[in-house]
Amino acid sequence: MKARKLRIHAPAIAYFDKVRRCGSFREAARSLNVASSAVNRQILKLEEELGAPLFERLPSGLRLTPAGEVFTRHVIAVMQDTERVSSELDALQGLRSGHVEIATVEGVTVDLLPAVIERMRALYPNVSVGVSSLGSTAIAAQISSGNADLGLAFALQRDNDLHQLVRGHFHLGAIMLPDHPLAQHRRLSFATCAAHPLILAKEELSIAHLLRPAMNHSPQWGRAVVETSSVELAKKLALRGVGIAFQTRIGIEDELRRGQLVHVPLVHNQPVLSDLGLYTRSQRSLPVAVDAFARMLVDEIARREQQEQEQEQAQSNGHTLIL
């Protein structure tokens, strides 16, 4: 059953939102299925009422003015609150429909996120999910702009526009083949790993920033054999024996279960931890479908954090925990 589409705000709000997303009056009009002149009239009317231009008309396209940036924050709140009201009305009628848009890092798309989507589909088959895979540094902008309802990212820097729903602590470790000379270690420093070929993350990934202090204290290490912005590629290269890669256990669950890879936690004075957080826009009331999906993600992150802690405890006691 299709979710209702409420229109309880002035058309100019929807027109402005579409223009800022499309960056063009013509594209916005095409998306809204109206004439370009109608879109232009609505924007001009808004600018007259606000007493300031909302867009700079440049040869390369449209760009928000400072007034446009301020108005954008209001429009995002209005549009998202309308979505929430629509979702709650649907829930009252038992429709259980809606849409969830999530921006996420690549690693969680391997096992964690599919598990949650599968559970969501079983309970709410009329809820659709949109997934964008990005680096951690790009996810905050997607949430702030209203392009994503939720963001799932490692080691995201504090941002006043974001509200953190949960944070799980996971060990960043060296991943390698089971027959690698370092595979039997309980802990490893970056300096020890650096005596072997390395597969490193590019700057757009949070892994690079987590490794930076340890790298700075290991001046003797040379260049990586591969640098990549894809954790999936890094994993594949580690499986082929190209070198040591650095990741959390999130995203390599199957390879660890099958014994194809070994994950050895990194230490730099203390364990190197990567925080996996779930985020939404500050002061936003979540629609029913988004809230249900967020709760499932919170539970799954907490479960996997507990699972890792139990595994660490079992290993410290000299036992192997089978997951």
Rank of each mutant, 00 (worst) to 15 (best):
K45D: 13
I252S: 05
L58S: 08
D111H: 13
S282K: 15
G251A: 04
L177N: 08
H217S: 15
E69A: 14
Q309V: 07
M296A: 10
E83M: 10
L323G: 04
L54K: 10
A194V: 06
A195N: 13
L44A: 14
Y15R: 13
R257N: 08
C22A: 15
H263C: 03
T137H: 09
R119W: 08
L6T: 01
L188C: 12
L172G: 02
H180S: 05
L58I: 03
R30D: 07
I43M: 05
W221M: 09
A195T: 10
E49N: 09
E253N: 03
A28Q: 11
Y15P: 00
L95C: 02
P181G: 02
L278F: 03
L50D: 06
L165Q: 12
L210Y: 03
A10S: 15
P66G: 06
K5Q: 14
L205R: 08
P125R: 09
R249V: 01
A195S: 13
R249T: 01
Q260E: 14
E27V: 00
P197F: 02
S230V: 05
L211I: 07
M1G: 14
I207Q: 14
P66V: 02
L210R: 10
P114V: 04
S31Y: 10
N147K: 15
R303P: 11
H180E: 08
I8A: 11
R73C: 00
Q142E: 13
G222T: 12
L89R: 10
L323A: 02
L46Q: 11
Q142F: 11
D17K: 12
E255A: 11
Q315W: 08
A122F: 03
I13H: 02
V226Y: 08
R41S: 11
L44C: 11
E88M: 11
D149A: 08
G98P: 12
L95S: 07
A141R: 04
I102D: 01
G318L: 04
R212W: 05
A234Y: 05
R257L: 07
P181H: 04
P53V: 04
S229T: 12
S189L: 09
Q311K: 02
H268R: 01
L286S: 06
R186Y: 07
V100I: 12
G277D: 13
V108F: 09
A115I: 05
Q220H: 10
D179W: 00
E83K: 14
K18R: 15
F154D: 00
Y279K: 05
R7Y: 15
A294E: 00
P59T: 02
S24F: 00
S31L: 08
S87P: 01
A174I: 05
T65K: 06
D90I: 03
A183P: 09
R249W: 04
G222Q: 15
A91H: 12
H263V: 01
Q247R: 10
V290R: 09
E203N: 11
Y279G: 05
R303K: 13
E300H: 04
Q315N: 04
R295N: 10
S282I: 14
D149E: 07
L211C: 08
A314S: 10
F55M: 04
